[in-house]
Amino acid sequence: MAGQGDAGRAGARVPRVELRGISKHFGSGAARVDALKDVSLDIFGGSVVGLLGPSGSGKSTLLNAIACITEPSRGRMRLDGDTVYDNRWLRPDLRRLRLEKIGFIFQFHNLLPFLTALENVRLVLDLAGWPREAARQRAAELLDYLQVGDRGQALPAQLSGGQAQRVAIARALANQPRIILADEPTAALDSERAGIVMDLLRGVARKNDAAVVVVTHDEKIFDRLDEIFYLRDGWLVPPEAAPTPPRLAIASSDMRL
């Protein structure tokens, strides 16, 4: 059985996300749907990778598996060197793991509407047990870093789309996560703001040595991805067989219609 804290393999660079033979099926018998089939990949710190594919290809299932909210059916998964899943063995404290190691960015920011921008960021730190004042200070610094420091007391409804997404990024970064999962983070933004958000994520990935995984159909940001993983019918398509970015964008757009 794989243990925890098995990160320190001397000399080797540890991937932030390490998947080996991950499969996931739903249902059984005639109703069985194989959402992921034998997916293996490594994502290293400092990189921004795209998870692409048409609808129903398994992108969401793979993202949910990495987010520790969907248990794979088979395979092995390590996050930041810690084994999370190993052929039916599932690490028990996934909530804590998500809180400490993973940051989430959503398509529609998903800020809590009843908390101010500052409180939304502070919430993650409160949950992690940070002292009150230290949490407030860290949240304020993050908002400043993302150039929305002056909007700290505003409720999400009082923020523009771009500002709200920056606050959401600040929330995702609050706990200095090793992995950032972004689900269509630029879909609701125009080209200029989408570029700014992606540049921010690239900056964070480099600065914190974090792995950023972006699920997207947005061709505006393809040029800002370090690597692309393309999924089709649950399979990870080898890079040489994957569509080139322009074709990929068209295919994705078609699939979304």
């Binding site: 987010a67 909210i69 909530r95 804590r96 998500r98 809180l99 400490e100 989430f104 959503f106 998903n110 809590l112 509407p113 009843f114 919430l123 993650v124 949950l127 992690a128 929330r171």
Partner: peptide, 16 residues
């Protein structure tokens, strides 16, 4: 519903 799902996702314990 969405706020609670978000809370769960970012690691809020059930007691919260």
């Amino acid at each position: 519903t969405r706020e609670i799902a978000t809370l769960k996702l970012i690691g809020a314990p059930d007691r919260t």
